[in-house]
Design a protein around this nucleic acid. Structure first.
Lengths: 339, 339
DNA sequence: ATCCGCAGCTGTATCGATAAAGATGCCGCT
DNA sequence: AGCGGCATCTTTATCGATACAGCTGCGGAT
């Protein structure tokens, strides 16, 4: 074992193997145009010397990092983990690494020149704007290939992999109707007139289902959330029960909110599904483990991850291509909460 | 707006401001030795030109990346999110960025030289080896400052921020005893003789509590898991109930497992806490939302994150310092599952 | 009157890898 | 023999920021 001291550079390997740096580069990067004997010799030296490629030098010269940024509002959410795992795998399949960036975390005390520079470290950016954090806007622009993943709609100039918001919620509502529910509430964020976002789209899906089945939409059956979290859902359940409204089915805007609703109903002694049936959206891993287990709209997360990677990769290759929009397929997963 | 074309370099800024590159570097990096007028002028040019620092060039030259790696077996677990959020925050406080590396994901087709190089991108590494993934071993060594976070014990040559495994589980067991439990089972991974790891340590804590309270340890009360996951816990609950063993309290090795147990008991119509009381370990966010809500050992996660960052930072400054070990403080959070 | 020290700034070599163009040798084909 | 064509390998010129040595002017000590 030599060379414990200092770092072995590509030049060192070249010298030891009796070839040029470029040839070493070609071998290490698995590029064609190197004969078998030379390739073997180089690899041997690489192993013996313990050489490790300097990523910064490569990046500086080539302008490519091989890293895609995955920007999420908060890493501490089940939905994030679900997403990240698939995205990491799909990226690896195409030779990309994923770096996770938490958009919520503002980097203080950094100069703009430095703060902004971090996104230049990425060959592309996947922006999961499932939260409603306006901070995300900071990342928009800056001219790197970008794909929106999930909920939020930005200017149409970005590639977009969308959830089946309307279709999924419509199917969820129909599922409740099929199970015999007649007074179906929807628990969701504030529905503001003009915005076209996850909340309004899912609300539309809900209304569409009622309409199609000839059921009246009742404003009293819209229970707005004070926060799109489990805790917000819990409080919503309390309000729903305490107000004495007659309800036999609930559509929750997300599984996280549904989890809170389940908890809130338990707080009040309301049984699910006996007293009220509940369906969520997302199919987070815990859905199957909740008590009762949660019926939900299950978008194909792997499909979404694969599509997102495909789109960034395509845009990296051709920055001028037209932006496209895609909607994930989904299934309704019926579990105990709607039995 | 000029300079939309190409990238603005530090040299461009220098030229426009009429100073040298080094001065621009000093200004941008907030280093001393620059007069106020010059600093203002440079910052103005930085703003006008839209200059952004090239991180790769800086890294290549300076040898520091300002990035700490956080290696976890899987990003798709509640425990991970809990940890990551705090680690990211604490790192930011000290001017570090965090890059998340999933150790479970083996990068195929990559040459060793490239695969290995990725950890050189980090100034330090925080290894959360809570799973029992041997892949983690790949990351060990390689001479970068490293801290073990959480469960796993490696050679004592690393800094280590440990969970209060023994103390916590002992307190959890005592909590069950205080609540009147007399036949307390422990659901955990396989306890192999020599290994000193999270499983054996927690098991010791459990035994210590029984001993101290004058209760006999019964081998029939050790229910081993086939997997340290929620699904594994669910199956363990089924076995526990189906075997007809008399049990009135259960200590689960993690909250994830406890979640599965809760679900498994529900499957069998066993009520928690009426028929059996249950306590977990970790205090993951869902613990409060489970039905019934889960009592658990709550280690101070923020403290652990802060300590880990502190330790890597110290080791970066002085690679020769002796390794130290620290154990997180904890509290017992009593919720419905032990009411 | 001279020298020293220091704050403030500049000039240049350098970090390690790569793109692009150039050199080399070998083959087959006319 | 001659020559294009190809595969293989080498050379040269960067990429952008930073370390380091060095230059300059100025106030204060000698």
């Amino acid at each position: 074992m030599t060379a414990a001291q200092g770092t072995v550079t590509m030049g060192d390997v070249a010298r030891l193997a009796g070839v040029s740096k470029m040839t070493v580069s070609n071998v290490v990067n698995n590029r064609p145009g190197v004969s078998e004997p030379v390739r073997r010799r180089v690899l041997e030296v690489v192993r013996e010397s313990g050489y490790r490629l300097n990523v910064s030098a490569r990046t500086l010269r080539s302008g490519r990092t091989g890293v895609l940024g995955l920007a999420v509002p908060h890493v501490n959410s089940s939905y994030f983990g679900l997403l990240a795992e698939h995205v990491i795998e799909e990226a690896a399949r195409r030779g990309f690494h994923i770096a996770i960036e938490q958009t919520g975390a503002a980097a203080e005390g950094e100069f703009e020149a430095i703060a902004q520079s971090h996104k230049l470290q990425f060959d592309g950016l996947i922006l999961s704007a499932s939260g409603l954090d306006p901070q995300d806007q900071r990342l928009v622009g800056g001219g790197i290939p970008m794909v929106m993943l999930g909920e939020r709609d930005f200017a149409a100039s970005f590639d977009h992999v969308a959830m089946p918001n309307e279709e999924g919620t419509k199917a969820a509502t129909e599922h409740l109707i099929d199970r015999g529910c007649r007074r179906i509430a929807i628990v969701t964020g504030a529905v503001r007139g003009e915005d076209v976002n996850v909340v309004t789209r899912r609300h539309h899906g809900y209304l569409a289902a009622l309409l199609e089945r000839g059921m009246a939409a009742d404003a009293a059956l819209l229970e707005p959330l004070d926060a799109m979290t489990a805790e917000g859902g819990r409080r919503a359940a309390h309000r729903l029960v305490d107000s004495g409204r007659e309800v036999d089915g609930v559509v929750a805007v997300t599984d996280g909110v549904a989890q809170g609703l389940l908890r809130g109903f338990a707080d009040r002694g309301v049984r699910v599904p006996e007293d009220v049936r509940l369906i969520g959206f997302d199919d987070i891993p815990e859905a199957a483990l909740m008590v009762p287990s949660l019926s939900t709209v299950s978008p194909d997360h792997r499909w979404m991850a694969a599509k997102a990677i495909e789109l960034v990769a395509a845009r990296i290759d051709d920055p001028e291509r037209a932006a496209t929009e895609h909607t994930a397929p989904f299934t309704i997963v019926a579990r105990e909460s709607t039995r």
